[in-house]
Design a binder for these strands. Structure first.
Lengths: 142, 142
DNA sequence: CCGGATCCAGAACGATACTG
DNA sequence: CAGTATCGTTCTGGATCCGG
């Protein structure tokens, strides 16, 4: 693993003693760290897809792989580990033959799901407007 | 192609092949694309910080740079362009000497701010629990 | 004062092959 | 079935220098 070792992903960048003015009125510097941790967690390519797929109940590894088009086994495993480490999903392996492993959302994961759904709703509501701005911007700069 | 596909999907009950599985019960594949666009936009290292800093009103470039500790000029410029392209912020340059440029949130940007605040609240509420899970996971795997 | 341009290290991601 | 190992590519972000 080495460079992708999970526990070293967020090497702490503390020792920030507020030399600068508060960046924002809605959160302080410490809160900013928290939200960035969550965005690092959820802002990657697959996390929200996996969380959404687990919304209805436990799902097996291969079902996840099939349900999420385009994901590689590597990223599925990696992201699941990541989500498991932060306590959003649980992994349960049943000692059978053939092996069976189920992943499920924890209560914490479900609570995040609801706020992610708000973001999804915003995306659906405004994607047309976003597209309009984008093409407008692109035309203005060419 | 339509009716043939439909027939095939119906007869796939025997095989364990979910022909075109929606990945999630809460959004379809197209919605998944939208939310990923928004996450790509907002999930980077600086976007939310900038949005938060602009929450109270227009801010000049150099004030942004000072208010956001650790950001490089390159990333500030880049991220601002990105946000401007999607219509979340506006850029207004005043033809003065010395030059002055102000950035401000659009209505779209403010609407996103409110949903981002929900995520920030979730982060603040659960960061302790997350930390606990992380150390627990790390201890279990060593 | 407000950037643009360039270079570069490291991280994220994907493809493929292999294993208990 | 459910992963791990390894390699290669692409992308991100920081440092630095330059320009209007």
């Amino acid at each position: 693993m080495g460079s992708e070792d999970l526990r070293r992903r967020r090497t702490n960048v503390r020792a920030n003693v507020r030399a600068a003015p508060g960046p924002c009125a809605h959160w302080n510097d410490e809160d900013a760290d928290f939200i960035r941790e969550v965005l690092d967690l959820v802002g990657d390519k697959w996390s929200v897809l996996i969380i959404g797929t687990l919304a209805d109940g436990p799902v097996r590894y291969s079902n996840l792989r099939d349900a999420i088009p385009g994901i590689s086994q590597r990223m599925l495993t990696l992201t699941l580990k990541h989500l498991q480490r932060t306590g959003l999903v649980t992994r349960t392996s049943y000692p059978e033959v053939p092996p069976r492993v189920e992943y499920a959302l924890t209560d914490l994961g479900r609570s995040l799901l609801s706020t992610v759904l708000a973001l999804a709703a915003w995306s659906a509501d405004h994607h047309a407007e976003i597209r309009r701005h984008q093409t407008e911007y692109d035309n203005a700069t060419t």
